[in-house]
Design a protein around this nucleic acid. Structure first.
Lengths: 199, 199
DNA sequence: CCGAGTGATGTCATCTGCTGACATCAGCGT
DNA sequence: ACGCTGATGTCAGCAGATGACATCACTCGG
């Protein structure tokens, strides 16, 4: 038996989630989290860079899956479709943790600081996807744009998914959102692919 | 003559910008800013919600111009084009403060906390643009998507603009980026507007 | 079996961002 | 002249975050 109870990090994560739900993020102090986990404040900060990070540590897996999927996508897949494959894979992952994802979303939606952190995580996902596309030979700006589009679709689809208890299939919602984006984005003088009029 | 030197807020802003440039954002304390402005720490927080907000207070104008432009755009303009008109107007505004915009960008680029704030400001811009589009009768999700696309174009074009001293015309870069996005987004089986294969 | 080293944790001290409560005082209107 | 208002100052205090150092079970070489 160890000197300490095992899985300190896990206990901290659990305690933090509970408290964030019970009384809100701002109203929860790190000292309280640590106490509930049977640890000290100092130890909390050894496991998580800051109070917010508890909710985002798991995002590393998302990052990894997204990048790997883009890397492994068929080489002839168009940039946007490759990026979409990545976010769809991420969506599948999220769907597996449906209950957790929704609780987490609620917490984040209730606090501006957390939304900031969420946005920068999404931005870093976008950057990673863009890098992966460049690795496939996609030109610089095209890669950024395709990645931004995919993440935008991800974001919009995810919001639809959390908001609507009927829509169970996040990847499907992403596909639908991409279709919609293509319709919306299509040049108003339709049928002229490539052309544009940015006035 | 007043009891105090005039324009306390302006002095704080100036002092903060100077110090952020001189020694970096993190390394600057609010007490130092206040001291340089001839005021107290407490007064700083009466003018700015937090240490970061100094760099973002001016964004209100951008917000306003963007929304007004979308509202005033010809009613028959396609959603994406209306949103683009908004961000292009914003781009023109930024271009007028070219030197400031670049200094500010440097400061923000050097600090993660500031990037978080920047992202949430952009997100709120996107939300505002989407609302304006809905006011024009654009459907819910289409509005979100068109706004997200416009902001993505804004972001990418802005990065090109700051990075490259040769490209002086931000609005033009935005137009070009939109074209590129349309090319990238276009269905790979080109010429079939509306169709897709999100496999 | 022992002693040195390691790694996770605890303890303590300190900074800094931020906030509430209350005091101060010039200028303004009546 | 009087009181109100609004911008500022003063003071006290909490919470997040970090550095320095102590502790102690566990491990591994001898």
């Amino acid at each position: 038996m160890g000197r300490w109870e095992p899985d300190a990090r896990g206990r901290l994560e659990k305690a933090a989630m509970e408290l964030y739900v019970e009384r809100g993020f701002e109203e929860t102090t790190v000292a309280e989290i640590a106490k509930r986990a049977g640890l000290t404040e100092r130890t909390f900060f050894r496991h998580f860079a800051d109070k917010r990070e508890v909710l985002f540590a798991g995002a590393a897996m998302l990052h990894e899956v997204l990048v790997r999927t883009v890397d492994d996508a068929p080489p002839d897949l168009a940039p946007v479709d490759a990026a979409m494959a990545g976010v769809v894979a991420g969506g599948a992952l999220i769907q597996e943790r449906r209950a957790f994802a929704r609780r987490r979303y609620e917490i984040i939606a209730a606090n501006a600081e957390l939304q900031e952190r969420e946005l920068i995580k999404l931005a870093s996902l976008s950057a990673a996807a863009a890098d992966a596309l460049r690795r496939r030979g996609v030109a610089d700006h095209a890669a950024s744009l395709a990645a931004e589009v995919a993440i935008a679709v991800f974001r919009v689809a995810f919001e639809r998914w959390v908001a609507d208890p009927v829509h169970l299939d996040l990847p499907a919602l992403m596909g639908a959102s991409l279709d919609e984006l293509r319709t919306v984005t299509a040049d108003s003088g339709a049928g002229r692919p490539g052309a544009t009029a940015a006035s």
